[in-house]
Amino acid sequence: MAEKAAKKIDVTNKKASFEFFFLEKYSAGMVLTGTEIKSIRLNKFSMVDAYCFFINDELYVKNLNISKYDQGTHYNHEPLRDRKLLLKKKELKKLVNKLTDKGLTIIPTRLFINDGGLAKLDIALAKGKKLYDKRDSIKERDVSRERMRED
Rank of each mutant, 00 (worst) to 15 (best):
D142K: 15
I106T: 05
E150N: 10
D101C: 07
V96R: 09
R81Q: 14
L85A: 02
K129W: 04
D57I: 04
E24C: 01
C52H: 05
E3H: 15
A5R: 14
R41Y: 05
V48E: 13
I113Y: 06
R147P: 00
F112T: 07
F53S: 13
Y51A: 06
K94W: 00
K102I: 11
T109P: 01
K130C: 01
T12H: 05
D10P: 00
V143Y: 13
E24S: 05
A16M: 05
P79Q: 04
A6P: 02
I55Y: 04
Y26S: 02
L121P: 02
I107H: 02
R141A: 11
I66E: 03
G29S: 10
D101A: 12
F54Q: 05
S46G: 10
L92P: 00
Y51R: 13
N13G: 08
K25L: 08
N97T: 15
L87Q: 03
L23F: 00
G29V: 08
N114S: 08
D101M: 06
M148Y: 07
I37S: 09
D49G: 03
M1A: 10
R41M: 09
V31P: 01
V11T: 12
L121R: 02
K94V: 02
L92N: 04
L95G: 03
C52F: 05
K14S: 10
I107W: 01
E24I: 01
K90V: 08
I55L: 11
K84F: 00
K90L: 08
G116L: 13
L85C: 04
V48I: 11
R145T: 09
D101R: 10
T100P: 00
T109C: 10
